[in-house]
């Protein structure tokens, strides 16, 4: 009883290939390549300024990459942006609607822009979220605004949802309601989802695959379960208090405190323990499992100490 991904034979749902985006001389996106399969939920995570918003703007065709190719649902984001926007349900971080419009006017306006609008879905969702037709956007609370954005995104039956940090600043109940709304439509329709967020809890709940963006580059991109299984923290004792020179590959981050040496290793295999134990001045190698949050923190710390 599995959900069938909507593969239409034209390649991955999202495909970025060697994408660079420079603002002046600084790269917001620095050689990004990634692909997202139909029907999967991709979590894009990274600190502020990592390039998440820029990437999403390129996916929606609002920004042109400086170089590289961006393809969404088989369309090139440069030349076929309008087709992409027809098929993608986009939920922004801050609502974009004109503040003076009433809910029914926003709905009417958006309805006229999309060729595949479903009035029943829209009505049903507006009722479910108790969004009043006559209230102006500026009178709605944050939680209601994000729900309205979701209604607008889903009512035109998109093949893909792109959620750009939509839950920032929401109270826990509103977040849950929003995510449940997304889950419901994914359960029913099986859309591909790209979720850009700060929250690792949301990523774990919602995403199959996760991509970690830092400094415009993808540091990690894999299935969450694989990532958890293949990234471990290793604890060892250093006999002379200083770590060895040549570290095995895959060391993301390390820390020395007294004689205790902690390192986080990606692509972990049983041989890794062996290799570390074989290094000069290293004893008592111990392996610890870590959760997603610690994993990402270590990635960031590792990047910061390298740069």
């Amino acid at each position: 009883m599995s959900l069938l991904p909507q593969s239409n034979g034209t390649g991955p749902a999202i495909e970025l290939d060697g994408v660079f985006k420079l603002f002046g001389n600084s790269p917001a996106v620095d050689g990004l390549s990634l692909s997202v399969e139909h029907g999967s939920t991709f979590g894009l995570i990274g600190p502020n300024g990592a390039g998440k918003s820029t990437t999403i703007k390129m996916l929606m065709g609002l920004l042109a990459p400086t170089s590289g190719s961006v393809r969404v649902l088989g369309h090139d984001a440069g030349t076929e942006a309008t087709q992409i926007r027809q098929k993608v349900g986009y939920v922004p971080e801050l609502h974009l609607m004109d503040r003076w419009m009433r809910v029914k006017e926003v709905v009417g306006f958006c309805r006229s822009a999309f060729s595949t609008w479903n009035d029943d879905t829209c009505r049903e969702m507006l009722d479910r979220y108790e969004l009043p037709d006559d209230k102006k956007v500026k009178q709605l609370s944050k939680g209601m605004l994000v729900k309205l954005s979701l209604v607008l995104a889903i009512s035109h039956e998109p093949e893909m949802l792109i959620l750009d940090e939509p839950m920032s600043g929401l109270d826990p109940l509103a977040r849950e309601e929003f995510l449940d709304g997304v889950l419901q439509t994914v359960c029913d329709k099986g859309q591909t989802v790209l979720l850009s967020t700060h929250s690792l809890g949301d990523i774990q709940r919602m995403a199959d695959t996760v991509g970690f963006l830092y400094g415009g580059r993808l540091l990690a991109h894999s299935n969450i379960d694989d990532l958890l299984a293949s990234t471990k923290r290793v604890r060892a004792t250093l006999t002379n208090g200083s770590p060895p020179e040549n570290l095995p590959t895959g060391v993301v981050w390390q820390q020395v405190e007294g004689r205790e040496w902690l390192l986080t290793v990606a692509d972990f295999t049983p041989e890794t323990v062996q290799k570390i134990g074989d290094l000069q001045g290293v004893e008592n190698v111990d392996v610890i499992d870590i959760g997603l949050e610690d994993l990402f923190k270590d990635f960031v710390k590792g990047q910061r100490s390298n740069s």
Binding site: S40, T41, D180, L183, Q184, V186, C187, M206, D208
Partner: peptide, 8 residues
Amino acid sequence: LEIHTNPN
């Protein structure tokens, strides 16, 4: 939906 997680 009950446990609020991805069906996959």
